[in-house]
Design a protein around this nucleic acid. Structure first.
Lengths: 344, 344
DNA sequence: CGCTGTCATGTTAGCGCTAACATAGTTCTA
DNA sequence: TAGAACTATGTTAGCGCTAACATGACAGCG
């Protein structure tokens, strides 16, 4: 059979939704003019532009962004990869990112690794497949394969949370230093028997970085730095368990440096139930500066981490890159602040 | 000039990344075979399949999902629209959705309306443009334009949080009934002067639905149902302010029914700072059953809403639809549970 | 008046992938 | 043993959009 015959009956696929062409016909222009009227309106005559807009409304046109992305080989997606959605910390960073990106017309693609680097690699592959404009990932640790994949990628990469040897851009704070800072505070208050309590620190390795700062400071003062690692994620309930373990395993402990505020507040509330006086019987410190810890009595001593601001700052840096503005520094330290409450 | 001449120099666009064709050449097959080996491996001979996989690794191929979506006119995206990322409630619903969808290879596209229906419409337009497989939105309230847009859409639509007149699928709980339930509890405990305190209830209209249930129950008992509406979003700090206003504006109040646990816990902690005994001087009740309220002393009386479960349930229903399984019921009530603590 | 520049719009050729149809080769069936 | 049925692979034609180049109309200039 001839070509004419075979081509006759080949079925259309796709949906029946109106396309650029339909709008173009309704407006009596070519489809490229419609495309221009929608994407670069200043390049189209005012009268024509209005005709196009009317036609868009008339036919109920919704742009097919998938087709647009294929043609330009770039989407207005920003991939964001975090290790957990159960932790407010990441949620707030996401919030900062999301607001800043959304205001500039970028759509966030959110992925959750559950602290699994294989999962991260998988997500990165998927996201690259979506021609994202940039990628934001929480933390500097990646699998080797993931690192290779990213190093061949030519779009901005932003690593947030901690500072260090980054692939491209980096916004965060020095967790080692934060751990030292709190340890120093406790030493200044004359606590000598101090236990550090973390939760799942192989996943939440930043808690481990803080512990390492804490340990350095204690060892410099000639003290031991005992560690208790809980095998559940940080939560109020885990804090309760953490306090119980300290009381049992280190009955002489005078202060507890918790890896985060959830743990610390859980312990503080539990201490009250047990009739322990904080800080007289036991001092308690946290990390993050969550509202929670600032509303209990005694107010929690903690370190304020600027989470939303970190997200915003990271997004701004990425946007600068996407706007081809010069990036002076690849690394930004957002810092932290010791909040001294009454719990130490 | 002839056609040959013009076609000679037209530049390639797109990125230099390897494509299906490159893999096909490396494997010595046609590109459709590569496509099949990756998408429907069972339709390709085992030996060929392995050759393809090897070629994929060799050339470092990452599938272009944008092109795939255009060809199939469907992406494995699920659009999820929530009014806020500052509220744990939505975060937990998102978590339930995300886990369930991700396990089945769907990618969540998250949008935040900031309680603005115009913004929601805008997001829906964008998401439809991405050929999403389904759309999940928090709540049943939409702008007229948005409703029209969605009614012409042929993919599953899931509305979560509350129950009612839905566009398609609906998973949630009865907020009116939840408000009544708590009011009934307070009446049973012989509180007669009860104030309801909400925050931004025009945005968080579900809090208003609970208030309406609360009011019905109180009025049925021949009581007034005074309302205080705070103009800040629910938070511990707002709860502090809420308690202050109640004490000032309704000095005779014996119980406060807060619209959520953040407010209630903030008030409870503030009451302790003020030296008020809870529930002796003032009873406090919340809504949501957040861990926070269950860790303070006295434990908060509240209503447990199954947030993650709601997300999971919603995702499962959507997946059933996407799998063309019969959907027996379009509406699912996930219910709620009164948690009686010591605060009432 | 021809030249250059600018503006507004159009034509053409893909972007990278897959649905639909086509084609061999092999196995099974009556 | 013809042909039906199945398996494995290939060819072709888009999906809906936009970059790149083309065209024509008009203004400004020496």
């Amino acid at each position: 059979m001839s070509n004419q015959e075979t081509s006759r009956t080949r079925h259309r696929r796709g949906s029946a939704k109106p396309t650029l062409k339909d709008v173009a016909e309704a407006a009596g222009v070519s489809s490229i003019t419609v495309s221009r009227a929608l994407n670069t309106p200043e390049r189209v005559n005012g009268v024509t532009r209005q005709r196009v807009f009317d036609a868009v409304d008339k036919v109920g046109y919704v742009p097919n962004l998938v087709a647009g992305s294929l043609a330009t080989s770039s989407s207005r997606f920003i991939a964001v990869i975090v290790p957990s959605l159960s932790n407010v910390v990441f949620i707030e960073v996401i919030k900062g990112l999301q607001e800043t990106f959304e205001a500039r017309g970028y759509q966030m693609l959110l992925g959750n690794t559950d602290y699994d680097l294989q999962r991260e690699h998988q997500l990165v592959r998927t996201f690259l497949g979506w021609s994202c404009s940039a990628l934001v990932t929480a933390g500097l640790r990646h699998s080797e394969a993931c690192r290779t994949l990213l190093s061949h990628w030519d779009k901005p990469i932003m690593e947030v949370m901690e500072l260090g040897e980054a692939l491209d851009l980096n916004v965060g704070l020095d967790h080692h230093e934060a751990g030292r800072c709190m340890a120093r505070h406790l030493l200044e208050r004359d606590y000598r028997s101090i236990v550090y309590v973390g939760a799942c620190m192989d996943g939440d390795y930043r808690a481990d970085m803080r512990f390492s700062g804490h340990r350095h400071e204690l060892e410099a003062a000639g003290l031991e730095a005992p560690l208790i690692e809980l095998d559940q994620l940080g939560s109020l309930a885990a804090g309760t368990a953490g306090l119980d373990r300290v009381l049992k395993e280190f009955p002489d402990a005078r202060a507890i440096h918790f890896a985060n505020d959830d743990l610390a507040t859980g312990a503080l509330l539990h201490a009250q139930r047990l009739g322990l006086r904080v800080p007289k019987d036991i001092a308690i410190a946290g990390f993050n500066g969550l509202p929670l810890g600032q509303h209990v009595t005694p107010r929690l001593t903690t370190i304020q981490s600027p989470r939303e601001a970190m997200g915003r700052r990271a997004a701004e840096q990425v946007l600068r890159r996407l706007d081809h503005q010069p990036v002076t520094r690849r690394q930004h330290d957002v810092g932290f602040k010791l909040l001294v409450g009454q719990s130490t």
